[in-house]
């Protein structure tokens, strides 16, 4: 039982981290709360499915295409949906939210809701860890989560683009004065965010079917992890995913799986009320939250 909780807790935490990473990256860099994140996650799940099943594109090539397209989508989405309302918090939220709802409900209307809509795992089969069965896909998810975090760390600390991301995040005005194009960086942050979302959808969606509601759920996951961890702090996000992931598994095992969803919602509300800056957030955010 305990091994099960640990293994599935780790898997679940990695899923949460993967789903949330893109949202938090975008918010951390450019303060854009991308409420279309969940929709992008599902959109590229469906696109991947279309590539594989309708267009019969080979698996690896389909992955590559999905990643590239999601990046371009995010970049364009910034200029279409956010650029004109930049700085007006309500309008940013509403326009991305409307974009997201539009995408998701469009797929619902198209009838993309049956059991045939599921993605194949990257590697089929399973193996035993300490006498406990775990399939390769879930192992890959754990590894990918670790890999992406490492990538993000090196990216933001050792590449020019990554450094300009951090510069904008820390002080937009100074960064502009130093010749960083804030618009381009913001657009790139949305692009990276949506590419991360598509990575998550390629890895996580094969565990079940692609459903519209999991798009809304993904947005909630992203928000919950971001808020509990204190947005913009990578260690905070890891901690938040671990806490939420394990609590969910424990709740699922000992209470009822129906209550698993409630964990995010409670976590968001409790953290915002009790510790507005999140578990590892910085003080500077306090004033804008409370």
């Amino acid at each position: 039982m305990l091994t099960g909780i640990i293994v599935y807790g780790l898997v679940n935490s990695s899923i949460l981290l993967l789903v949330a990473l893109g949202f938090c990256l975008t918010f951390g860099v450019s303060r854009i709360a991308n409420f279309a994140h969940g929709a992008i996650y599902i959109l590229f799940g469906y696109l991947m499915w279309i590539f594989l099943n309708w267009l019969k594109i080979p698996f690896l090539f389909a992955i590559l295409l999905t990643l590239v397209l999601s990046g371009i989508f995010g970049y364009v989405a910034y200029y279409v949906a956010v650029r004109r309302v930049r700085g007006i918090v309500l309008s940013e939220v509403v326009s991305t939210f409307a974009l997201g709802v539009g995408i998701l409900e469009f797929f619902r209307w198209m009838g993309f809701v049956t059991y045939e809509f599921s993605l194949p795992p990257i590697k089929k089969g399973s193996l035993y860890i300490l006498g406990f069965p775990i399939d390769y896909q879930r192992l890959i998810i754990i590894l990918a989560a670790i890999g992406l975090v490492a990538f993000l760390y090196f990216f933001t600390h050792y590449t020019k683009l990554g450094l300009s991301f951090r510069a904008i995040a820390q002080n937009e005005r100074t960064a502009i004065a130093l010749g960083i194009d804030a618009d381009r960086v913001a657009a790139l942050s949305v692009a990276f965010g949506s590419a991360f979302a598509s990575v998550a959808s390629i890895l996580v969606l094969p565990l079940g079917i692609i459903s519209i509601n999991s798009g809304y759920e993904a947005l909630l996951i992203a928000i919950a992890v971001g808020i509990v961890g204190g947005l913009e702090s990578i260690p905070g996000m890891i901690l938040a995913s671990l806490v939420l992931g394990f609590v969910q598994i424990v709740v699922g095992v000992y209470v009822s799986s129906a209550w698993v969803m409630v964990v995010y919602l409670l976590a968001i509300i409790v953290i915002l009320v009790v510790m507005p800056s999140g578990l590892l957030g910085k003080f500077k955010e306090l004033e804008e939250r409370v």
Binding site: A258, W259, V262, I268, P276, V290
Partner: peptide, 25 residues
């Protein structure tokens, strides 16, 4: 009442979550 102190996006997030919360409960 507990979340009225929140500002901007944070209040929106909580209100987005509330209806879902009730449905789940």
């Amino acid at each position: 009442a507990p979340v009225l102190r929140l500002k901007g996006v944070y209040f929106s997030i909580v209100t987005l979550a509330f209806p879902l919360f009730f449905v789940r409960i």
